[in-house]
Amino acid sequence: MVASNHISSAFDQDLKEMSDKITKLAELVQKQITAATQSLATLEDRGLDKLIKRDKKVDTLEAEIIEQAVQVIALRAPRAEDLRHVLVMQKVATILERMGDYARNTANRTKVVLVDGANLVPVSKVENMSNLLLTMLENALEAYHTGNRDLAVEVRNADVEIDKIHTALHKEIIQAMSTNPDGLVSGVHLLFITKNFERIGDYIAGIAEQVYFLTEGEFIDNFRPKADKTSWNA
């Protein structure tokens, strides 16, 4: 949904450059989540160090987008949909960067799990959760690029499935830990990993909410569906 047709073509160019960077950042974060999942799913280190190192690129891109947003606001004084677009791109960049942090944190913890003992990993369920996240992210990005409000709302509501999976996995891992004292360290890291994925789901829903703001000019209601019950689980 790149705003165009301004009398000032340089303004169009600024917005396109920012939007292109959002696309690049989103692709990078998708790659990070995929890479983190692969090592967990295969129980093999599939380039976790490279993933961790790549997080710097995520940080750099986010900083570039924020810097560009400041420049556009200062130099172009955008209004209406243009202003929303700049604000949304800046916000989405920050969200993507946080998602990248969770992917990196997952990689760090996965390295420990692979060394300490991977028998507690509910492989297929973690993979399933990650695949759902990647589909949500893809849809959120499509909603952003096409200005599809309905798809954005759909993505936001899909986060409830991630919450349900997280709640189930949380329970399952705690049960496994209680019967396997040797796997306590791995178990704790797995709990954090699944929590990371749950938070990534929240962030993707946050991107969807930004798309809603972009297209509608107002914020969506505050009642995002939630189903994460882990805080209440014994």
């Binding site: 705003a3 047709n5 301004h6 000032s8 000019g217 107002e218």
Partner: peptide, 19 residues
């Protein structure tokens, strides 16, 4: 008016899209 104009002529003007 400057955040959510309702008429597309207003929108075009305030966002600098008039040719």
């Amino acid at each position: 008016i400057f955040t959510t104009p309702q008429h597309d002529l207003t929108n075009s003007y305030i966002t600098g899209r008039f040719g």
